[in-house]
């Protein structure tokens, strides 16, 4: 997070919406007139059931668009935890979906934030929005952009489905509230 550049990695099973929250982040960064890149893992990695994308948000022109060492990483499943925990930059933050990722060996030089986002999503009434809940948690603890910009991006990406925009906004706020209460 030095010199106005933040590197994100979002990883999980296909279907957990990790590419989507990367897109929300990228869309919001664009709306905030920041420089941004979004790269998905593609090809055989996708077939294996895990998906991930990386996002860079910067105040100045982005050179390398690849993210080898994320400042902020999110792992929605155990396989992603194993694969990516070592890559987080020292001093960075790893967000873990504790609903399904057991308490595994961690690292002392990074912050590990465990949130049962599946359970929180379940309480909201829609299991699919666990990813958006986590986005809210990330926003509460390690914000790069304004809350309003992220909500605007969520609404824009919901397209012509106001009920989806509403659901996503609720999930996002639930994530923020959870983080404020527990961390």
């Amino acid at each position: 997070m030095t010199s106005g550049i933040t590197k994100y990695l979002f990883a999980g099973f296909g279907g957990q919406g990790v590419l989507f929250i990367g897109k929300v982040m990228a869309q919001a960064a664009m709306l905030a007139k920041r420089q941004v890149t979004w790269i998905p893992a593609y090809g055989p990695e996708m077939r294996g059931g895990t998906a991930n994308c990386s996002v860079i948000i910067s105040n100045k022109r982005i050179g390398s668009p690849t993210v080898g060492k994320p400042d902020i990483a999110l792992v929605m499943n155990e396989a992603s935890y194993q694969k990516f925990i070592a890559s987080v930059v020292p001093g960075g933050t790893l967000y873990v979906n504790s609903s399904i990722v057991p308490d595994l060996q961690g690292r002392d030089d990074i912050k590990i934030v465990r949130v049962p986002v599946n359970d929180i999503a379940h309480e909201i009434g829609e299991a699919k929005v666990a990813n958006i809940v986590m986005l809210g948690v990330i926003q509460a603890l390690t914000p790069t952009l304004e809350d309003e910009i992220l909500i605007k991006a969520l609404v824009e990406l919901a397209g012509k489905k106001p009920e989806l925009a509403d659901l996503n906004s609720r999930a996002f706020k639930a994530g923020i509230e959870y983080a404020q209460k527990h961390f």
């Binding site: 897109k23 664009m30 941004v36 890149t37 979004w38 790269i39 998905p40 593609y42 668009p65």
Partner: peptide, 10 residues
Amino acid sequence: DGILGQMMEP
């Protein structure tokens, strides 16, 4: 290359 093909930017 594949990264540029798959990458999103404004």
